[in-house]
């Protein structure tokens, strides 16, 4: 749940989602679910000339499984907190594993 938890905090921030087919879409993150499906608003394709068919698309729903990277706004990430959250998650998983 860490990634879900993390992406929830990025809602209403601008992110760039790089898909596994190399398309990069920049837009405002509107919603994310536990499968890391992503809803973007006001999108803009990074290499618009290459993908003209997307130039008139305003918002997208991206299935989580086709996402390669999400470029994060660094200012919106609280690194120490994320580290702690990661520790907790790891501790939890270790606890479950036993």
């Amino acid at each position: 749940m860490l990634f879900f938890s993390f992406f929830k905090t990025l809602i209403d921030h601008e992110v760039t989602v790089e898909l596994k087919n190399d398309i990069q879409i920049r837009g405002t993150l509107k919603s994310v679910d536990q499968y890391l499906n992503i809803k973007l608003d006001d999108i803009q394709v990074v290499e618009e000339i290459k993908y003209p068919h997307l130039s008139s698309v305003k918002n997208v729903f991206i299935r989580g499984s086709v996402v390669r990277y999400v470029h994060l706004p660094a200012a919106a990430v609280d690194v120490p907190l994320l580290e702690d959250a990661t520790r907790r998650e790891a501790a939890q998983q270790a606890g479950k594993g036993k």
């Binding site: 860490l2 938890s5 929830k8 905090t9 609280d78 907190l81 959250a85 907790r88």
Partner: peptide, 10 residues
């Protein structure tokens, strides 16, 4: 425990 980052950050 499940949602630590989100809860704390928000």
């Amino acid at each position: 425990a499940e949602d630590f980052y989100y809860q704390v950050l928000s």
